[in-house]
Write a protein that binds this DNA or RNA. Structure first.
Lengths: 331, 331
DNA sequence: GTGAAAGCGCTAACAT
DNA sequence: ATGTTAGCGCTTTCAC
């Protein structure tokens, strides 16, 4: 168990050539004479030489690493984003430096700034309001945001949030519901506001209003907690549109234990189409927001930018309504 | 948007001191005279200097990065492992370099070898049989395995697999079941074999035998696929122990669409206690294997090793039976 | 307490 | 096709 691995100089010595030759050989930069190539092969094999990526990065300025910050890896939406991003990264010989900020806003900036120094580019999912995001431009690294920035010229991928809830509201309207509530997550203001707006617009077209509640967290636990407040309050809804699937799942579980029959007593919808909505009881009606594709595209954009083909646009995926059993005609 | 950031030399010049002094100041290596400290502070602030971690790593030999390879981030078990590992890493100012090998065995070795060069230590989850794992010792990096190695002196964390299925079998026996099947995942031989053994031992004590099936993948999709083979074959079981929760969830869904009543017609159990088992219908009886704690402990062991306190033991978490509604007395 | 100088392992001109 | 050399930005003796 010797501690120090051989360097390029050891190889050069062993093969009787110069370090430059070894370097070029390793990087496949050109062709070599048969004898040199043979000696190189032998020496490298014998020494078990592997080039030091740190030293290389110091010079080339590239690490073949992409930084990815997400809010919570436990949320299947982000899990899928990571999955997609990882797949594309691996295909292009990049590795992911992952930071899970754990829904902790205060942490985001220092973590991202530290991360930026160790990677070639970043994919960032943040809860920071646009106004406080200018410093990201000073990172001097290619960046892709996982939601549009209204004010900054940073490429991004996302979903049409307004449309997700518009579609859900329309769906519920079609089923005959009139009393519709939205159970949101106010700490994600931009997304949440857009979603409220979508539902509200749809309902207003029908002359109805939207009751808005807040779950305080994007988790199933928060959904459970909020359920009695929504369902046993003074304005009991016939249908509830939840900020995401996790909240919806928790909501449904708690509703059942409150003695409510689903979906007869209340229709429930989520957003995200996490893989487990279909195993719930009743299976969850939701909107697919293409999480994995978002991860893939974000990574692809970044890699394109790194290759000199930047893309400053915001790419918007189209939401798709997935109707299952948690929504039914209003009794 | 200037491209090149200031170096330690720029700071030294601006502050009128030597680079060595700047270096020491940044690393808080010693105390300084008031005037020097003041000038340093000003210069660093004015230039917006941030030390280059790559250059530092080249010298110190440490990157403050931990490599983590997992088989599939989509599997909530691994998601939780990552969550736990990330939490401990962040606390100690380490970052995760994540590699999702996507259940692709051929990829594992090259990916891990490449990863090893860029990190201070690794946490590895692999499907490789023990015999083919010797090369990991040549990585010359602290290592923690996410399952015990029988032959290699590498620290590890894991679960008592035998006990998980023993407990489940006992539970089913207590409910009066006699025809019990195991729906496994043969590509994870070590884990799978131990789980078969646990169930078998328990049944043999009761004079019964275990029917073994294979799902070919650790996913809900595979569970769905396998269901009809198990339930409509010649030896229809009264209860099925699945390799993990995902397989169980898929199995239950398909069973329902085959017209079976759960749990009356068949009791089903999983292993892992993924967060969504409790939302399934019926809620899934399972065994908690403490995935997040595994991630935490693995990271803690690694960080301890990096700090000079290695720990060569295998740490085994205790499985805990979680009884919900997917198992019931044999009708 | 502060500074000069020697590299870490490698790549990138620029010779030859 | 191969070699020489000058660093990348930083830490680390070892003087002063």
């Amino acid at each position: 168990m010797k501690k120090n691995s051989p360097t390029i100089r050891d190889v050069a010595a062993a093969a009787g050539v110069s370090v430059a030759t070894v370097s070029k050989y390793i990087n496949g930069a050109q062709r070599f004479s048969a004898p040199v190539e043979a000696k190189l092969k032998v020496a490298i094999e014998a020494l078990g030489y592997r080039s030091n990526p740190l030293a290389r990065s110091m010079i080339t300025g590239r690490t073949r690493t992409i930084g990815l910050t997400i809010l919570d890896i436990s949320n299947p939406h982000f899990t899928n984003v990571v999955k997609g991003a990882n797949r594309v990264a691996l295909r292009h010989d990049y590795t992911l430096l992952l930071v899970d900020t754990d829904e902790n806003q205060a942490r985001e900036r220092p973590l991202i700034e530290a991360l930026a120094q160790r990677v070639d580019g970043l994919i960032v999912s943040s809860r920071m309001p646009d106004e406080e995001t200018h410093w990201m431009l000073d990172l001097n690294k290619p960046l892709v945001l996982l939601r549009r920035s209204e004010t900054l010229p940073i490429p991004s991928v996302g979903i049409d949030n307004r449309l997700t809830t518009y579609m859900l509201a329309r769906h519920l309207l079609n089923l005959g519901h009139r009393q519709i509530a939205y159970l949101g997550f106010g700490q994600a203001p931009r997304i949440n506001d857009e979603r409220i707006r979508g539902a509200r617009e749809c309902l207003e077209e029908a002359g109805l209003t939207l009751d808005v509640y807040d779950a305080h967290a994007p988790t199933s636990h928060a959904g459970e907690h909020a359920c009695s407040r929504v369902m046993l309050g003074p304005r009991r809804p016939q249908a509830v549109i939840c900020y995401n699937d996790l909240i919806a799942l928790g909501f449904m579980k708690e509703a059942a234990s409150l003695g409510l029959k689903l979906p007869q007593d209340v229709s429930v919808t989520g957003i995200d189409n996490v893989p487990y909505g279909e195993f719930a009881s009743p299976a969850l009606t939701t909107v697919d927001i293409q999480s994995e594709k978002m991860g893939e595209l974000a990574m692809q954009k970044l890699i394109d930018a790194l290759a000199g083909h930047p893309d400053t646009e915001h790419s918007m995926f189209e939401p798709r309504l997935i109707v299952r059993e948690s929504t039914a005609a209003c009794g």
